[in-house]
């Protein structure tokens, strides 16, 4: 594995090499080198299986991180090849010609993160969501609570209590009345 790491450093200028365990290594390459890199790993290093493609929304740095997980059946090792793409106009080269199975992952990423993979068959078809008309739901700026409040009706008879109000009522009702009466004296437009 060490030799392989040296080779990819040389060929693809691999960075952030993180040797998580003896049989697993993560590294990152430039977006433009990604396709060549996975092809090389498949054809020359024996990583013939595409386990999955995952994405992370790095909203703070304005990027999406993509990780291509590959497995080598012969020596039973895994690699995770990372690359970062622009969040504003997210588009990535499709690898469906290398692995037909990549279509599923790419279609899922299109739906959940809005990352486009031009050339991938049926990439625009719904994957798990039907009739979705909102931000892709796995994006960090998608407001789950707001969405569910707008979409679903509240359960009838449901109620919750505020712990502060509860303690006011049960433990210091008189002082709570005093507090309310006094607080407004220091505020404008009381």
């Amino acid at each position: 594995m060490e030799e392989m790491i040296e080779r990819i450093k040389l060929k693809f200028n691999a960075k952030d090499i993180n040797r998580q365990k003896a049989t697993l290594v993560f590294f990152s390459v430039e977006k433009k080198d990604l396709e060549a890199c996975v092809l090389y790993m498949k054809e020359f290093e024996g990583y013939s299986n595409l386990t999955m493609i995952s994405a992370t929304d790095w909203i703070e740095t304005g990027t999406f991180g993509l990780t291509y997980h590959l497995h080598n059946y012969k020596n039973r090792t895994d690699v995770g090849i990372k690359t970062y793409i622009d969040r504003k106009n997210p588009s990535m080269v499709s690898i469906n010609t290398l692995w037909a199975g990549a279509r599923v992952f790419e279609r899922e990423l299109k739906e959940m993160f809005g990352i486009d993979f031009p050339g991938c068959p049926r990439v625009d078809d719904p994957f798990a969501l039907e009739g979705w008309d909102n931000l892709p739901p796995m994006r960090k700026d998608f407001d789950t609570v707001k969405y569910s409040e707008e979409t679903y009706f509240p359960r009838p008879g449901r109620s919750t209590k505020d712990n502060v109000t509860q303690m006011e009522e049960k433990l210091y009702a008189v002082e709570a009345e005093v507090k309310k009466g006094i607080a407004k004296t220091v505020r404008k437009n009381k």
Binding site: T144, V145, S148, T160, K161, V164, Q166, M167, K170, L171
Partner: peptide, 23 residues
């Protein structure tokens, strides 16, 4: 809770006391 699955409710076996809302 991201799914608003949790409500605080009164239960018979716990009473409000200093440092504990009893909910």
């Amino acid at each position: 809770c991201q799914n608003a699955a949790i409500d605080l409710v009164e239960v018979a076996s716990c009473q409000a006391k200093p440092g504990d809302s009893g909910l």
